[in-house]
Design a protein around this nucleic acid. Structure first.
Length: 1064
RNA sequence: GGGCCCGUAGCUCAGCUUGGCUCGGAGCGCUCGGCUGAUAACCGGGAGGUCCGGGGUUCGAAUCCCCGCGGGCCCA
């Protein structure tokens, strides 16, 4: 049996209860089993980083995923939904360092020990996986929480090794001396994509210095730099070959700088008096020798004496500086590149900790940034420094520890992306659908500008590079898996963990010289870990299945920051491994910002935790809010008011549900026992309308989901709940369900309401999994033991096209506007809505509307609360309207002179409406005036409508509504009856009477006329308030047990009594 | 500096693809009134706008084009 629902919905309690039930009844796994034979849909979870708690953005990400996955499941797919966890890398290392109180790699290796450090990192990851899993579960996210893929397992590491082996075999892996971003705190290289978005403004020294030319007395190259600490590594000065350079004389010295920058630079230097001594092309400066300014301080520079020349490079710009660029190939990418062309030494006297090495002479042991000051002093003392200032400019920082990065030349391992870039782009454009489509452009732009991928990190908690090098002959071997390792290992391998430090202890025997091979100590960039997850998560290559039947994945979705990160790292790794792209469909989503569009951050104090929202409103509301507030791909501005609006929608949904179950329970309505053949004949227009709406909303929501317009789906559902169900259909059927007997029309309403709710809960299930489950259980499961246990096991509702009647829907929306118009007219006339009126006239603005409204007259009549409804087309007029013809005397006199008065006289005796129709139709009308034929036209007469007293009119966009506001005594009696009914209902409610309970009622009045007036309404009142006995008398006579209350009804006093009948 | 996206009422957003009879809208908030046996609900009226700014195309621009400005993400 359908049970009456609780009056209010306690989201928190219900969600906990549903969650526990899912768990206890193993619903998720039952659902999965039920789809075991269905076509698969391979969703790949972008692994969140297993450190810290989830924030609003992570919540949104999983909510989007969950909604899509639930939808796809209902569409009949066997959806793969294994969650993933990204566990390696610096963020966790940094946290563990903090926890253990260590600050450097030396501490890790010597104080803590790598073994314990790794174990701490593993524990950190495990702890946060557990924590975040619980948080995701609370959001109602259904995934395989018990069997996620985790990047630190041996199997996963093997997948990475195998992939690297593929790269090696294709010649895509290389070791090279490169200039890379280096974090002096973490003491490791950072890849290009780790720098992205990590620029912060910093204040750096800005200095002009002069380098004395070797062979020309008093002549200098003028350079500008913001990194004095790179000057000890200076080996050249670079100019642009095509630019014009000026020799500028200042106080007897001559400076060489770009012509275009002379004025600027002289201004900067505060030099007012200077002379242009001549111009020369950059190309002609090439080869000029200069004296290295820090030769004494950095003795090592003597080894480079053959250099210290002017070289040419295209990268020199005129945007800042002097056009003469201090060049240190050991500390800059462009410097490195141009240096390679000229065979310059790569001098990089800076250690991994960011301190100068012994090669830096005087500066050895100083941290580079601290050395800035010392170097500046030296330059100043030596007369090299012309000006020192300060500049604020963006500078890259370590994404984890926020320390400014430096450039260092180191040996690193790279993937040669340049070799596969064309294939990535080609496979991407052929095989991937991007939603929204413009993300494809953004992605391609990103890939085009990407360089080689530095995959080595000089750290601990990561996938070890599977590269061993012979200590004897330098031969290199790359291990693709555990078996390969066991074969070559010099000792037994056993079940060893593949992380450091264990793996470092594995020595291999060189196949060439029998020498000992040792592993390269580096670990992999974490982005490589997640890049391989589409196959690593499936256990490939260790297991051929399910990889062979599933790969590539059908769907991924992540935030917009992943466009050049995970979306890219996956494609790059996959093209290396398989020559193919690893996914078919990408939905990019936005960022969760605060309500003003700012990033949420602790320092701004604008952070909203998902748990805060859930505690207050429940997960359903948070989910619906996040899915409805925006298109997924735009940034979401979190707004508490918006959440509250969703909560109210949920409330209304619940109220509709309470309404339905209340009456259905009362009447023991059983949807299974309904003879649809019989009911069909009793459908009223509003029933057919509701069925039509149910199906067209189903269609709209389905289309929206298919296109990932999840916001449109959600908004359509909210609209359906609020407008169609609550504000209209329930209002229309209220009277019908109050009827106390078996009435086929009442059953019809139940059937329609039931169907609407049944579809609605399925459509809402992917977005609000909890409340729909509760509703499903009581509304469906309670009456049908064979129905699936959970709403989430149901198939997605199909659209019954035959039930959709576009004209009916159109007509109904017009009717609604007209009813609103009538309310406005009533307000003018001071007529309460519950007061019946005699007549309402609807004059539409087109004949089309008359047709659309014809079948809806019963609805209109009921909602307009009138005894008589007149529906008119635009050219039809109500009898109550008088059309008055106003002749234009001036116009008539001009045209007809003395005949004018006679014309007026005739016109006013004519049928005004016919005259107007004639004029409208032909533009003129013929008259017989004193035997003469006269032709008058539209401009000669005006028409005015006169509304009689007692009428009120309201215009609407579809026509106007006119109401007869005059109340006859009969109507007044009805008005009074309704006023009394309302008060009696209030009294019933106050006494907590059950809805079906009967009462005795006495109505006492001060005025005898009321007794008479109400006599005619006795039956109506008794029916409405479920009175067994109803007595109408004078107030003084009201007495007896029961609740008595005095009321004032529009100035008249009444004493009402409601007596509960003793239960028998 | 470059790429992509966004900019409409105090706030959060529809409308823009395909220019014109929902072209200036909705919800929230404010305000006045009404309704209420599903109602901690709801309904109606009102106030509130340089559709970011400036040019252009057109008979006509929130909508299309160009140039700015502001915000977000990414890249330099």
């Amino acid at each position: 049996m359908i049970k009456q629902a609780q009056k209010t919905y306690d989201a928190k309690k219900s969600e906990q209860e549903v969650h526990a039930w899912w768990q206890a009844s193993d619903i998720y796994n039952k659902l999965k089993r039920s789809r075991a034979d269905a076509p698969t849909w391979f969703f790949l979870d972008g692994p969140p980083y297993a450190s810290g708690a989830i924030h609003l953005g992570t919540a949104w990400n999983k909510i989007i995923k969950d909604a899509v996955l639930r939808y796809k499941t209902m569409r009949g797919f066997n959806v793969l939904r294994q969650p993933g966890w990204d566990c390696h890398g610096l963020p966790i290392e940094v946290k563990v360092e903090e926890k253990l109180g260590v600050k450097s790699k030396k501490d890790i290796e010597q104080v803590i020990g790598v073994e314990r450090f790794i174990e701490e990192c593993r524990q950190w990851a495990l702890k946060h996986i557990a924590l975040m899993t619980e948080q995701f579960k609370r959001l109602g996210v259904w995934m395989d929480w018990d069997s996620p893929y985790v990047t630190f397992t041996n199997d996963y590491i093997e997948s990475a090794w195998w992939t690297l082996k593929r790269a090696h075999e294709s010649g895509l892996l290389q070791m090279d001396l490169r200039i890379i971003h280096w974090c002096p705190r973490c003491e490791t290289a950072l890849a290009e994509h780790e720098i992205r978005g990590e620029y912060q403004d910093v204040r750096d020294p800005s200095l002009f210095a002069r380098f004395k030319l070797a062979d020309r007395p008093n002549e200098y190259l003028l350079i500008w730099t913001t990194t004095p600490w790179t000057l000890p590594a200076n080996v050249a000065v670079c100019v642009h070959p095509d630019y014009s350079y000026a020799r500028v004389k200042v106080d007897g010295d001559i400076y060489i700088l770009a012509e275009a920058l002379v004025a600027n630079v002289m201004g900067e230097l505060g030099v007012g008096n200077y002379q242009l001594m001549g111009l020369v092309k950059g190309k002609e400066l090439e080869g000029l020798r200069y004296e290295p300014p820090l030769l004494e301080e950095v003795p090592k520079q003597r080894e480079f004496q053959s250099h210290y020349r002017v070289i040419c490079g295209e990268h020199v710009t005129l945007e800042e500086g002097t056009g003469c660029v201090h060049t240190a190939p050991g500390h800059g990418e462009e410097d490195f590149a141009v240096g390679a062309k000229y065979g310059l030494p790569v001098f990089s006297p800076v250690g991994p900790d960011g301190k100068f090495t012994a090669e830096a002479g005087k500066y050895a042991g100083l941290f580079v940034k601290d050395a800035d000051r010392v170097i500046l002093e030296d330059l100043e003392r030596k007369g090299v420094l012309l000006k020192r200032g300060v500049i604020t400019h963006p500078y890259p920082h370590c994404w984890r520890c926020q320390v400014p990065l430096i450039f260092r030349a180191t040996e690193q391992w790279f993937l040669k992306i340049s070799d596969i870039k064309p294939r990535i782009l080609e496979k991407n454009s052929a095989g991937v659908r991007w939603v929204p489509d413009w993300v494809a452009t953004r992605y391609v732009n990103g890939v085009e500008s990407v360089g080689d991928w530095c995959i080595s990190r000089q750290r601990y908690w990561g996938i070890p590079l599977p590269i061993w090098i012979c200590q004897n002959c330098d031969d290199m071997v790359l291990i693709g898996g555990r078996e390969g390792l066991a074969t070559l290992a010099s000792g037994p391998l056993g079940e060893t963990d593949l992380h450091r430090p264990h793996i470092d202890r594995v020595k291999l025997r060189c196949q060439k010289c029998q020498g000992e091979m040792r592993r390269v100590p580096d670990v992999l960039d974490v982005w490589f870990d997640s890049g391989i997850c589409s196959w690593a998560s499936l256990g490939y290559p260790r297991h051929g299945e399910p990889f062979k039947s599933l790969w590539p994945s059908d769907f991924i979705t992540e935030g917009e920051d992943q466009v050049t990160k995970w979306f890219y790292s996956q494609q790059a790794a996959s093209v290396i491994a398989f020559g193919e792209v690893p996914y078919r469909l990408v939905l990019m989503h936005g960022f969760a910002l605060d309500e003003h569009g700012r990033k949420m951050s602790k320092s701004l104090g604008n952070v909203v935790e998902p748990s805060e929202v859930i505690d207050k409103y429940g997960a359903d509301v948070l989910r619906f809010y996040m899915l409805s507030a925006n298109p997924p791909w735009e940034d979401l501005r979190f707004n508490w008011k918006g959440v509250d609006v969703v909560n109210r929608m949920l409330n209304v949904l619940w109220n509709v549900y309470v309404f339905a179950t209340t009456y259905m329970a009362l009447d023991e309505f059983d949807p299974k026992k309904i003879d649809m053949g019989k009911i069909r004949g009793h459908f009223l227009p509003e029933d057919l309308w509701m069925l039509s709406r149910t199906n067209s909303v189903t269609r709209g929501v389905t289309e929206a989901f298919e296109e990932f317009n999840i916001h449109i789906a959600a908004r359509a559902l909210a609209n359906f709940v609020l407008e169609d169900l609550s504000r209209w259909y329930v209002r229309l059927v209220r009277e019908r369900v109050w009827v106390e007997r078996e009435d086929p029309r009442k059953l019809a309403a139940y059937v329609v309401l039931y169907q609407a709710l049944h579809s609605l809960i399925r459509l809402l299930a992917p977005i609000m999994p909890y409340v729909t489950e509760v509703m499903y259980r009581d509304l469906v499961k309670a009456v049908d033991a064979r129905a699936p246990e959970s709403v989430h096991m149901l198939p997605w509702p199909s659209v019954q096209e035959a039930a959709i009647d576009a004209e009916l829907e159109q007509g109904m929306s017009i009717a609604r506007v007209l009813v609103e118009g009538a309310a406005a007219a009533r307000q003018q006339a001071n007529l309460k809505l519950r007061w019946p009126i005699g007549k309402a006239i609807v004059q539409t603005s087109s004949p089309e509307m008359v047709r659309l409204l014809r079948g809806l007259q019963s609805v209109l009549k009921g909602q307009l609360n009138c005894k008589e409804l007149v529906l008119l087309g635009p050219e039809e007029y109500a009898a109550e309207f008088r059309l008055v013809c106003k002749p234009d005397m001036r116009s008539l006199t001009e045209k007809f002179g003395g005949l004018a008065p006679a014309i007026v006289d005739t016109v006013q005796r004519m049928d005004v409406r016919r005259l107007r129709a004639e004029l409208r139709r032909y533009g003129f009308a013929g008259l017989q005036i004193a035997g003469q034929k006269v032709r008058i036209s539209s401009e000669d007469v005006a028409f005015e409508e006169a509304l009689p007293d007692g009428f009120a009119v309201a215009p609407t966009e579809f026509g106007r509504v006119i109401i007869d506001a005059r109340l006859t005594p009969e109507l007044k009696a009805e008005c009074l009856a309704r006023e009394l009914v309302r008060r009696l209902q209030t009294m019933r409610k106050e006494q907590d009477l059950a809805m079906e309970e009967r009462v005795d009622v006495v109505i006492g009045t001060k005025a005898d006329e009321h007794v008479k007036l109400l006599a005619s309404q006795q039956g109506y009142i008794a029916r409405e308030v479920r009175a067994q006995n109803l007595r109408i008398c004078r107030s003084e006579e009201v007495a007896g047990p029961g609740c008595v209350k005095d009321w004032n009804v529009d100035g008249d006093s009444f004493r009402l009594l409601v007596r509960r009948l003793s239960k028998s």
